[in-house]
Design a protein around this nucleic acid. Structure first.
Lengths: 203, 203, 203, 203
DNA sequence: TATGAATGAGTCTTCATTCAT
DNA sequence: CATGAATGAAGACTCATTCAT
């Protein structure tokens, strides 16, 4: 017998992941997950409290990776900017997310587009807020170090940039953009944004 | 007591609009709309063919406004660029959308965030594609007029900018941004994007 | 204005007849009849007590024609058989029904196949019973006149022949059999049945 | 208290069978079946995909029996007619159907009279066509073997005989005819039809 | 007469979750 | 651990009929 004890849990998760991704959280019923994973419907509840928990488990690796990125960004050494360069923030960001996208394409698509009805249905908004706050703090740090810099930028603009960034991620995973195109795109994106930020910050 | 025809129709529409906005198309049941608008459930079907039609009716003014914007953009005089200026496209765009947002805040929020399960569930994607195509054509027109311009820009980048633009709209209506803040923001946004495009197009 | 007062009633009836025929009594809603006949839904109830009454009205001519046939059959002169001939009963029957079919093709189809849910849903059964009784009486009359005739025929057989006769009618109207084919068929049918009856009655 | 699986399934089927028979497929609601079989409405859907499937299950044995009869008829040995006798076809037919009726009285009634709205609503027509085709082929085989035989018989006549045959079946099951009466009847029926066919085929 | 609005019970079906074994 | 059975509320939508004007 190939499938043993804990494999059941994994099978459920795998099926759920694929089905959630394809059809969206709301459109996949527990019945269907049970059938696809060849597990008794009610048995699922021995492994997961409820449907939502399955999604949480499915998205757990992604969430941890996102937390990891956050931590990286908040490390003090990243804040000591020896040379002022708005490019740096972007560069880092992009670098961190390139891997993320590579590893969690499916999960990202799921959480960005198909989590309606779950506990992650507001993920986009929440993450954008988080991201905005980080950007805001970064700007302030910058101002401290380089007082000449203009940071008379509305919080909403930063918020919007954060939101747009999620859109970018979303589009990449949506279109399953191959790595070369992705890198070309990120080049363009960086050129675009760096010029934009420099202009805004009047550097 | 028989209420005048249009009162009830409007009441249903208003209730639906608010409820759809708040909870999303899928999560609002006909039963609930009926209860909320104090109309017999089956009576709703004397006014609307089905749930989807209510949404369509709610979003009809917005859709027409969007069509109007499209037409404006496709008018030939908009394509004859006397002075090369990537700012122009943006300026126009923003100008057209400022009104749109002012008039259709709720509807925009509804179609962008809460139309899952309805005939508009792919609106974001469809509109983005439309927008992308328009941007692409614009670039080619530019190249014809000003051969020095660089248009070696991936289609995906344009697509992403279109998507990001919808995110911007979404954030504005989401946060119910007051007009002054909106105008400040658009100033920043234009500064940012203009610098970005100029850099990319190597002008 | 072409359509006046009583034409409304007729229009409703015409629409109902066609729709009932095409889709069956149950599948045609009052709403639809109203829409098709360009009459307000509730106005229909000024002309007809209910849906069933519309059907009754539609089928009224047919029912009267059937009654007429009955009467013809019960006239005493038809019972005085100068020459014994089982062909005679059939001949008459067929003759009477040929016209009926010609005039009430649609109505016959309706009452035989599409009256489910109406007051005529048991028409087939009821008419068969009637027909059976007539056949039975005829046989007895025969026996009185020609004691040599065998009438040791189960009532059920007569019943079945009556039922089969309705099937025949049903098939003819179902297939909209043109008159020449109909006459050929009736020829075959008579040959077949006459031989059958003669054999059974041991004449 | 948990009843054994099959008990409930069977109970639902039995209730459905009886109710369908009595009131017709369309007029029996799932709610009613649930109430009658003392099963939660939604629980029914743990046993059957939908209403139609219940009917299919109910009629499954009958359908298989009918298929079986078809196969019997198509066996080559049945086509080699050693002695010409139109009686043979009938005899066989009747023999096969006697059992069928005995075993599937209720189901036959259901499919013939009360399947409106289900996947079997055209059964009568479909079976008649099938039957007609079989009859037609039989006649041709006859002609090959016995060229003297007249087969200038309209297809419609055969069709009608097939239809009438279903009527006969219908009447038998409708009246719940006891076996002795049934056998007497079939005797009469055979006498009648044999004489008829012989006359028609000019033998 | 004519109408649009209203009614209320009805249709089949789906869902996530829990129960009893 | 595992299961099939059970639950109860909810989903959109339809219907013949009646009401008020």
């Amino acid at each position: 017998m190939q499938t043993q004890k804990d494999n059941i849990r994994d099978k459920i998760l795998e099926v759920a992941r694929n089905e959630f991704l394809e059809k969206g959280y709301k459109m996949v019923s527990m019945r269907y997950i049970a059938k696809q994973s060849e597990v008794g419907l009610s048995n699922i509840y021995n492994y997961f409290r409820n449907k939502d928990e399955i999604l949480r488990e499915v998205l757990n690796p992604l969430m941890q990776a996102l937390d990891h990125i956050m931590e990286e960004h908040n490390k003090p050494e990243h804040l000591s900017l020896e040379v002022f360069n708005s490019e740096q923030l972007l560069q880092e960001h992009i670098f961190l997310f390139t891997d993320l996208i590579e590893n969690y394409k499916k999960e990202l698509h799921l959480i960005l587009y198909n989590a309606h009805g779950s506990c992650y249905e507001n993920f986009r908004e929440e993450y954008t807020n988080h991201h905005t706050q980080m950007g805001y703090e970064y700007l302030n740090k910058m101002k401290e170090k380089f007082p000449a810099v203009n940071i008379q930028i509305s919080e909403f603009f930063i918020h919007t940039m954060s939101s747009a960034w999620l859109s970018v991620i979303g589009e990449i995973v949506s279109h399953d953009l191959p790595k070369p195109e992705m890198e070309q795109f990120f080049g363009e994106y960086m050129t675009f944004c760096t010029a934009g930020w420099k202009q805004l910050m009047k550097v």
